[in-house]
Simulated assay, not measured.
Amino acid sequence: MYELKETDLTKEAYIQLLERLFDRCDTVSFAELPKKMMGQKQTLHWLLQELEPYLQGIVYDNGTKANLFDANVSVPNYYYRICLDSKQLIMQAAENLFYWQQPELPEDLSFMRKEEEYFVTNAHEGYAMLFADDKQLIELGGTLWSRIK
């Protein structure tokens, strides 16, 4: 497993990182935290509506892919099929991997391949984890990965 901190990813590398993840993975996901947790009044309907044709399912859990909460908290985690259109919507939504946090965007953009976690972010904490030995990502210019466990 590898970790990428917010300070170890350049803006230019973000686009290349996403391109690689979209090429390697088949599902993208993120969560919508309860509004009371985030102190927000608006919902994220604009992005959810745009991505609806690619929705594979919503799983309610007690957290995001990278962040667990109390057992009594129910968080919808949205799973979308990766295709050209869903890729374009997600790539246009943010200019930085760590902008994927509420209230502007859903929480913790993550990628899966064959139902296995491939790449998971914890945007509020400023780090991401790569669960695959993806040499192309690890050696991507503008990134500095740390090997962990």
Rank of each mutant, 00 (worst) to 15 (best):
G57W: 14
L51C: 08
G141I: 12
G142N: 02
Y2C: 04
A94V: 00
F98Y: 08
G57F: 05
T64L: 08
F119D: 01
T27M: 10
Y78S: 00
T143Y: 11
E115H: 04
S86D: 01
N77V: 02
Y118V: 06
F22N: 11
E52S: 12
I148A: 09
G126F: 07
S86F: 05
Q101M: 13
E6D: 11
V73M: 12
Q40H: 06
E115A: 06
L137T: 06
F98M: 01
G57T: 12
S110Q: 11
G126C: 04
A93T: 00
K65V: 03
L47E: 08
S86N: 03
D8M: 00
T143W: 13
E104C: 15
P76K: 12
T10A: 09
R24N: 07
I58L: 02
F111W: 10
Q136Y: 08
Q40L: 04
N122K: 05
V73W: 04
Q56D: 13
M129C: 08
K114D: 05
D23L: 11
L144M: 11
A93G: 01
C83K: 06
A31L: 11
Y2V: 05
E3Q: 05
N122I: 07
L144K: 15
L17E: 08
R24S: 14
A13I: 08
D108R: 04
A132R: 10
L33I: 12
H124V: 14
Q56P: 04
E19F: 02
F69Y: 06
D108A: 15
L130P: 08
Y99M: 07
L105V: 02
L21C: 07
M38H: 02
E115Q: 14
K135D: 15
N77T: 05
L44F: 09
G57D: 04
V28K: 10
N67H: 14
E116R: 15
Y78P: 00
Q16S: 10
D26W: 13
K11G: 11
G141W: 12
P106C: 01
C25I: 09
T43C: 06
E116N: 13
E117P: 06
A123D: 03
